[in-house]
Design a protein around this nucleic acid. Structure first.
Lengths: 237, 237
DNA sequence: CGGTACATTGAGAGATATCAACAGGCGTGG
DNA sequence: CCACGCCTGTTGATATCTCTCAATGTACCG
């Protein structure tokens, strides 16, 4: 794996133009604060499959995803993997209590992040209670999603899991890129399986079944919904 | 179900004497602030199985658990239940983005909470960034626990689930009440099953198996660890 | 003492995992 | 440009774990 921590724009970026500003922590900052904020972060690009940070590693930076998709996961000692989430543009990563990351993060495709040194960020936040409030808001939202995912992992069948995943993923993409019934899936079947607590074979079979039932159509790099209503019925069940 | 929202001490309590102060959100407040804080909360007692709040209900209050154990859960439309956590003294409940609770909370045994009207609490927090920071800290810790639980739900066997649960529950009780190899389990087998994504029968069988293997001993209202090392080996696996 | 709720145990079924083979796409290198 | 190999995904056959259904046991309480 190449280790290409390339700074794309060494502090030459303009936050006020940032494409993820309104989704991100920075949404809470006013024009003046954004100017100060610009000196804090630097854009960094990661190649597909590169690791942004690993579980148990000391936290030296926080990250704001600008472009691309990341998988966030935890490993058991014997190698079993649980993906705890996928990060999309606007997501803010790295907050923790212990000073160590409590999950790992890989780039799925090419990824660009805005990286903030932890110490400088902590100093900046010190006199910005509204930024803290924004971060808190994001944490609470994530917590709510985490609980939803617990329900999925603990109490749903394979078919329900896959249908729910496809619908939720679609919703997230709609928020970012606008409505569409075609849903790109940049992650592998293995990633989906590890997210849903299934095996790759079960995921594959379930996709095929949903296609046979004319609920989705499998297309290269994603799926397309043929019958959203029936998909939602499966997911709600 | 009786609806006994009895105010135990109608604002006659003294926060500085509070048993959960050092575990709770209030830990971040200094002596003066605590005095103001006292006027905000009121102690409320709930009988076993009473509901403190329900999912989707409008959030009118936040709650600080003072005594007892609560189950926090979500229901699927068809009645399947996933317990997303158990609340113990010191836990702070009710934060959300949407203005509605995103899970339900029942008392397991008798419970006493410190209830804060949402609006008053929001006003109080306004000029107390350290309280906000404390709340954020608790949210981030919970998020980390939620992710750990996702790994358990998605990737662990029944035996691993039960062993992990017993050990984690023991750790939490140790933090509150000091070390012991005897672990009270105030929740029912059904609660444990719904927490671990199992059925009651599987939980019962697994308890029995752990006892046959001389790892635990089942006692009325709880278990006792006979071989902590082997339990930890099962949980780590 | 009987009843009810909870827990345990057993037998069998079913969903998902496991193991194995095969197919398709893509890049590389001849 | 085509052939080969690799990687990912799909499909099939079988195994296994956990669930389901049913019966029994146990503790608590009126």
């Amino acid at each position: 794996m190449k280790h290409s921590l390339v700074a794309v724009e060494p502090n030459g970026h303009i936050c006020s133009d940032c494409s993820v500003r309104k989704f991100s922590v920075c949404a809470s900052l006013d024009a003046n604060e954004v100017r100060d904020f610009e000196h804090l972060g630097r854009h960094v690009a990661f190649a597909p499959c590169e690791t942004i940070f690993s579980e148990e590693e000391l936290t030296s930076s926080f990250y704001n995803v600008l472009d691309g998709v990341m998988r966030l996961y935890k490993l058991l000692p014997d190698g079993r993997r649980q993906i705890v989430g996928f990060a999309l543009p606007g997501d803010f990563l790295g907050m923790n209590i212990s000073g160590r990351h409590n999950f790992s993060a890989d780039a799925i495709g090419p990824v660009i992040v805005c990286q903030f040194p932890k110490a400088a960020f902590a100093r900046f936040i010190e006199e910005k209670p509204h930024l803290l409030r924004r971060i808190n808001e994001l944490a609470i939202r994530e917590l709510s999603q985490a609980r939803d995912h617990m329900v999925l992992l603990g109490r749903r069948s394979a078919e329900e899991k896959v249908a729910t995943f496809l619908l939720c993923w679609r919703e997230r993409l709609i928020l970012l890129y606008g409505p569409s019934n075609t849903v790109p899936l940049p992650m592998s079947r293995q990633d989906i399986a590890d997210f849903l607590g299934l095996t790759i074979e079960t995921v594959s079979r379930t996709f095929t079944k949903l296609e046979r039932d004319r609920i989705i159509e499998i297309i290269p790099g994603g799926i397309s919904f043929l019958d959203l209503a029936r998909a939602e019925a499966l997911a709600a069940a």
